[in-house]
Amino acid sequence: MEEKILMKGNDAMAEAAIIAGCSHYFGYPITPQNEVPAYFAKRLPQVGGTFLQAESELAAISMVMGASAGGARVMTSTSSPGMSLKQEGISYMAGAKLPCVIANIMRGGPGLGGIAGSQADYFQATRGGGNGDYQTIVLAPGNVQELADLTILAFDLADKYRIPVIILGDGYLGQMSEPLVLPKPSGKTFEKPWAITGAKDRDPQFIASMRLTPENALEQLNLELQETYRVIRENEVITECYQCDDADTVLVAYGTAARIANKAVIKLREQGINAGLLRPKTLWPFPSEILRKITNDKKKVLTVEMSAGQMHEDVLLACDDKNKVDFYGRLGGALPKVDEIIERVKSYE
């Protein structure tokens, strides 16, 4: 058996990024993800990489843009208020087709909010987030091992599709320690002929989101982006089903909320109630088709979230019969309660 180490989520993500070949990190401190920059600050110089603490999240994401255009595997991380600031650069990178990995270890909002874990940035993450018609891939790990594993995947997806990839965790996941087997590099490599490396023996290249001429150039760029998104939707959905086959009620939850929902499913089954859990690991692309198929013959579907019902809208969109879809959530950094989930599911009996 491979050796396990007890590792904090934030540390595990940073180490996995380095394993994935992330050579540059730019970030700005904010709780509850401060272990991430601290980890990179210590480790990146050891592997010949570069860590730089930026003067703001705006600067950090722009540094990420510069490093990405230079051809490096690059990452930044933040928490909710900082993620709002990073939207500027994310939109530019989406338009300029630049890959990068951005972790949002969410905390409660709006505004400064609190520091306890939350899932209230789902809309921001899955609807683009900044200005313009764009998407980012959004990965939603549920435990420390998965956080590390999906970080490796995040870098591959970013390079494969030339797209910003968001790791959407929450403060509990970032702060949680669990046994971890360090992930292996995927071994995949991606050529980056588009990188800005100097116009030697070739024509000059310019990377930009701006398209002013000819008249339809910007629409053309948008159509190209939409085509990429279509391919991603078709190929990159990841989801996990737990005891869904014979379930009367299927819970739908991701991240830390899914851990709690999972416990509720176990306890419900102990009481003879057939519940199951569907856990999206990609929030964009959302597993709409899988969800629709699985829930078609179920009596009830219950979305469990640490928000006022953001993913719930995607669940509603996916399910044919909206009347059987219910929602339970806690807000502002509060955790869903197993007891309350059980009570809600029992009320369907």
């Binding site: 705006l58 722009s62 843009m65 510069g66 255009a69 500027e88 650069g89 530019y92 300029a96 800005i196 490396t197 100097g198 116009a199 000059p204 290249q205 310019f206 990377i207 930009a208 989101s209 701006m210």
Partner: peptide, 9 residues
Amino acid sequence: LNVDGLEAA
């Protein structure tokens, strides 16, 4: 300018 370039916000 006949050089490689990059846009910034």
